[in-house]
Structures are given as structure tokens and as C-alpha cells.
Amino acid sequence: MEVITTGIFILLTVAAYLGSRYLYFRYNNPLVNIVLISSVVLIAILSLGKFSYAAYTPAKDIMTILLGPATVSLAVPLYRNRQLLRQYGAAIILGVGMGTVVSMVTVLCITGAGGLSREIIVSIIPKSSTIPFAVDVAQMAGGNPALAVAFVVATGTFGSVAGLALLSWFKIHDPVARGLAMGTVSHGQGTAMALLEGEQQGSMAGVAMALAGIFTSVLAPVLILWFVR
């Protein structure tokens, strides 16, 4: 019975994704976001069917196995656009580094001014890196890993919904700049949306996502130590 339920959940997840993807390309509107819509549909199905998250977990575990190959596959568009790395290498490293620092410092200023607890602030700081980086940073600094995951997902979802539209609104149309911005701020979800827009955007977003994770791991502990003192 569990095997059948797991199979049904996998099919529902794939159907939600394909339906959301169709709507995205059909209407080309930032609010028609693949991750957001498919997540809402799945949550609604689980809630209406009175299924617990534990019941969905086996299906989730099977599907997340594909995250590794999917991440590695980002090397394909990157290899095709490797000339961009040679051309803009220094600018990419500097830009992603500055973007990562600005993101973390902004969080410190806003959350500190808001009087939030140290645990929450530490958990928010690595929000623009991927979940493995954010969880490790939060744990080392005394934050809450669950909160860190929640903030990472929320950041990625918001960035994937509004990121490209905001870049267009500010008249930033260069594919390299758009990809780097999405990967730096919105990690995996932003990279997925950048890849849908174009191969150059997706390859640069993948580079930015990796660099942002490295910069976060190195710089976040320093900023947190400074904040505590």
C-alpha cells in the first residue's frame, strides 16, 4: 500500500510541476512561478486529503535523489559558455563576493534594528546560500537549522518569483548580470528560473550559486562573531 501511495505522490508532484511549467510559458508572468504554484497545489492536495507530511516523505526522498545529477548537469551549459568565465572571471568573483556580503550585512542591520533574538538573526544570515551551507553555518553559530532552512526556501521562492521582473524593471538586460544576480541571491530556485530564461543566464547563475555558498561559509562566521561582540 505504501508503494502505491508513494507512486501516486510522485505522479502528482510531476503533474503539478508540468502544469506549472506550462502556465509559466503560456503567460510569461513572474507571478506564474513554477516552484510557487506547484508547491501550493501539492500543499492543497495534502491538506484536502488529510495526508501528513510523513506520508509524502518517501516520495520526496526518491525525487530528491535526482537533485545531485540535476546540479551536476549545470556544468553542461557552463561548459558551453566557458568563454564568459575567461572574459569576466575577476568581475564575477568580485560581484558575487560583494553581493554575498551586502546580503548578510543587510540582514544584520534590519534584524538587529528589529530587536530579534540572536538565534533568529544567526539563522537568517545565510539565507541566500543553498540549504546545506545555511544549515552548517547556522549550527556552528548557535542558530536553528530548521529556521535556516525555512529562510532559505522563502528567499529562493521570493527571488524566483520577483527576481527577473525586478532586474527588467531596473533595465538590467545583460544575460551575465541577470544570471549572476539570480544565483547570488536566490540560489537553486533562482538558478532554475535563470536557466528557463536562457543558457547563458543559467550557467552564470550556477557559478554564482556555488561561489555564494563558499563566500557565505567563509564570511558568515566572521560577521556573526563581530555581531556578537
Rank of each mutant, 00 (worst) to 15 (best):
S129V: 07
I65N: 01
V101G: 13
S123T: 07
T64K: 10
N144C: 12
V137I: 15
S128T: 15
A134P: 00
A138F: 01
L66W: 00
C109Q: 11
V76L: 15
D61A: 14
V102T: 14
G115T: 09
D61K: 15
P132A: 05
N81K: 03
G89A: 15
L74W: 04
V135M: 11
I110K: 09
M104Y: 07
F133G: 03
Y88E: 13
V135C: 02
S117P: 01
D61M: 12
A70D: 02
G95C: 03
A75F: 04
L78W: 02
A75L: 09
G143R: 00
I65E: 04
T64S: 15
A113R: 05
L147F: 07
P132N: 03
A150G: 03
V76Y: 01
D136G: 13
R80K: 13
G114H: 08
L84M: 08
M140C: 04
M104K: 12
G89C: 14
S128Y: 04
V149S: 09
V72K: 12
A148N: 07
A150Y: 04
V102S: 15
Q83I: 10
G68L: 06
A146H: 03
P132S: 01
A148H: 08
M63H: 02
G89E: 11
A134D: 00
L85T: 10
V96R: 04
V149H: 01
A148W: 06
M104E: 13
L84N: 05
G112Y: 11
G97L: 14
S128H: 13
A134M: 02
Q139R: 11
Q83F: 12
S129H: 05
T106C: 14
D61R: 12
G68T: 06
I121A: 06
P77A: 07
L74A: 12
I124A: 04
T100Q: 06
P126M: 10
L74E: 10
G112N: 01
I62F: 12
T100G: 08
A150Q: 00
R86H: 12
G143A: 09
A141S: 15
I131A: 15
V137C: 06
I124Y: 03
M104W: 05
Q83E: 11
A90E: 14
I92P: 01
L78C: 05
A148I: 09
P145K: 13
Q87G: 10
F151N: 03
T111I: 14
Q139T: 15
S129F: 00
N144L: 13
A90H: 07
I121M: 11
S117L: 00
A148G: 08
F151E: 02
T106A: 10
S129D: 07
L94P: 06
A75K: 08
